[in-house]
Nucleic acid binder design. Structure first.
Lengths: 206, 206, 206, 206
DNA sequence: GATGAATGAGCATTCATTCAT
DNA sequence: CATGAATGAATGCTCATTCAT
């Protein structure tokens, strides 16, 4: 990578990092582009070389952060050696929840900008080049000992349920703090998974 | 009511209605206060007689609309004569979902401004004079033939699950249109309810 | 005085007192008529029954406060029994300075609104019915054992000198606190008085 | 200086000049920022590039104008060859008074915004690079044949006295027009100077 | 590519004043 | 006399966007 290229990358990263910091502390509406460029140490015009406007940089940030969250979880899952689908999904969920519990600004930022189902579009239908996250979920399902019907519906329901309940539980600790709520939540997740199992064939042969 | 009082009420309602119309069509960020007052036919200063700013009128609208939605559902429930808790809750959910399906602007408006669990705080802890909506839910639970534990958790989980899944299903028809998704959704709701039943006493005596 | 008359008086006084309080704490520019009426507990329209605008009430307040200041000093002078002009003038000056030292808001209010020589027009050319303050000064001069020339000029010079130096000295304690500055100030005042004495006749006969 | 720098300077000067003109003709309260930018031929946003608000530009103008006034007087003093302190101070005073007499808008602007002693802080403790005006006054005192005590107090008293009396005399011609009042004023100034001379040593040795 | 001065439309907010009750 | 709801012109200020250097 040439020095010029390097510098370009550096400027863009600086803008992204600064924007994230300001968005999470001041809110998006109250963050002006001039705030971002000032803090990032670049000229105002430079912003427009890389991003269309404030919402462009926001969208890129949300997608990036959300994807990173699940990539981490997936990597950890690989190391865990868990084999059953319900255990795997709950492992991923737990990993993400823990990460967000430790990082409330990120939780706030993602949840405010992933109005409900938007999470799905970002996460489950990825545009990442090397196989998206949704494919990984599907792959988990396919390799389980059981067979499942309406896998789309199952994953959708789980993602929405967890996404919306975890936010309140972490931020407001209502109706329970997240650690106290987890048993209830994971019980429901397990129930959802079980209810999608094909019952006639107890397990896949082979 | 004096003529003055009447006029005040009229002005405020006019502002609320106009704001709702503009918020749902242009979005809140793109709606200026001058747009609202112009369309409502009042002077700019009048706006500030009744509301602190754009977000004040928005909050009042969200609360009002959400409350109306559940009041209607509750009234219909009363006429239905349903007695079992799971049937009652699903009746209310179904009523609200149908109302929102028929009124996508309202769905959009409410969901965008009730970031997930905020729905709970608005709806379930009402300031309405004659007993709030949360009390009605509790009342339904208490009168059921079964006893339940962790009622707070149960209601919270159901509200969040339904709120977030229904949005996608109605608006994007993904992963299924709402009518096709309902059986899955209601099955999960029933499972949640059942899982909160106290098991030692199959039913309340008396 | 009828009850109606009494009430009128009460409202006006309430407005004056409230205006004075707000002017001295928030400043005139930042005090709105709505602030005054709200705090005074009267309706907005009522303000306009008694005063033309904000500056009308301000002018009335300044004149009233300044006059009261000198009336007090004059009364105290009467009780003191001092006979010589220089002693009398310095007594009055000292009395006013002490009052303002004990009441910095009043000092600030008066000085900010009596831009320099305006003090003269308010104080020295009174419109008060029972003989104005300027007349009293003249009377002091006339009754002195010495005769003076250019009395107008003498009084003017003294008033301006004291007015402008005392402000800094009290508020900023620069170049000296008022008590330390007084000896210098009064020495100059005495010199001004002496320099206006008619020299040919050492003293008035009789 | 680059073209850009030049242009910046021009814009700022244009704003300062226009603001001064409007402040002196319409008054500060009645001058809107939009008035200034319109007359100056720049965009509204440009104003905020150089000044915080209306009062920022006012303060900068007052300081600048007051400083210029005394710089001119000081330069003229240098050309005059006067050696004695009282003559020097009265020369400066006379120069400033004459300048203000010929320029009533400037007198009005400065006096209204240099509430009494504020003149001192602006003028006598300058931030000008090449030694401030106060230092020049001190230098005059030090080089006089006599020694003085409490020089601070002496200069302060003179500045305040002249500042407040001259305003009335020039603007209202009361109690006398400035030319007629000057003899009285300068007599007092001389008395103040003499009263600060150290008496034990009639003159500095050497 | 990078800069940052300049722009000016756009917006929220204030507030003196009126007048029907 | 007193009220206070309504007005809407006035104004300060922001900020995304452009473009000459």
């Amino acid at each position: 990578m040439g020095k010029v290229e390097e510098n370009k990358k550096k400027k863009q990263e600086s803008l992204l990092n600064t924007a994230y910091e300001l968005f999470t502390t001041k809110g998006i509406n109250s963050t002006a582009i001039s705030d971002i460029v000032e803090k990032a140490g670049v000229a105002k015009g430079t912003f427009y070389l890389y991003f269309k406007d404030k919402y462009d940089i926001k969208d890129k940030l949300v997608a990036h952060k959300a994807r990173a969250l699940f990539s981490d979880a997936d990597a950890a899952l690989g190391r865990s050696g868990i084999q059953e689908l319900d255990g795997q999904l709950i492992f991923i969920i737990d990993h993400v929840i823990n990460a967000l519990t430790d990082n409330e600004p990120l939780l706030s930022f993602i949840s405010k900008n992933l109005v409900m189902g938007a999470l799905r579009s970002v996460l489950l239908t990825g545009e990442s080049s090397d196989g998206d996250i949704y494919d990984k979920f599907l792959s988990l399902v396919e390799h389980d000992v059981y067979e499942y019907e309406e896998v789309d519906v199952m994953l959708f329901t789980i993602v929405e349920l967890v996404g919306s309940t975890a936010y309140d539980s972490i931020i407001y600790k209502k109706p329970l703090p997240i650690e106290a709520y987890k048993p209830f939540l994971y019980r429901v997740v397990r129930m959802i998974i079980e209810s999608h199992r094909k019952t006639e064939t107890a397990a896949k042969s082979g």
